[in-house]
Amino acid sequence: MFDLATVFEFTRDTVIFTVGITAVLASLGVILCSSPIYCALYLISHMICLALLFLLYNAEFLAAVQIIVYAGAVMILFLFIIALLGGKKEIQENSLERSIAFTFILTLAGELYLSATVGPTQQIEGEISPELFGTAKAIGLELYSKHLIAFELASALLLVAAVGVICLAKFSFAPLKRR
């Protein structure tokens, strides 16, 4: 009458489906909402949904990193800026930018359709042992052996960007006097 395995599979599929739909709805909320605070909140919920999806596919480390880096640090800065500038609602009006944005969305939808018709996603071929799958160790081994140069270059690029931003923003003013 009841089969536990199918019940479990069904619940798992439902959970994955619900989280995915929530992620899509939240990302829609980001572009459709007019209040910046709520936009940021939609973005946060989208990122949490992504982390949940990672978790459902056994990538615990990625999920934790997703939440710590994006939801925990980047989005806090977003909210910080919104609080500093004052989050007022925008008045929506039809303009050239609006129509360009809709064209962009339609193009994205077309791309989505194309990628859906091309076929199902495929697993990445590699020699990761199943007990290491999704752990910090597997990611570390991959990142610091095969992709070391790309990793170091990316970190150098980020450092340059951070120093550049500080140069552009800070040193056009006279340094603050110490009290």
Binding site: F61, I67, A71, G72, A73, I76, L79, F80, A83
Partner: peptide, 22 residues
Amino acid sequence: SGILFVFAISGMGIYGMVLAGL
């Protein structure tokens, strides 16, 4: 990755304070 989980979730706790302020 228990310690990462603690950091991730307690990091989310800041939102409560920021949202209360906002």
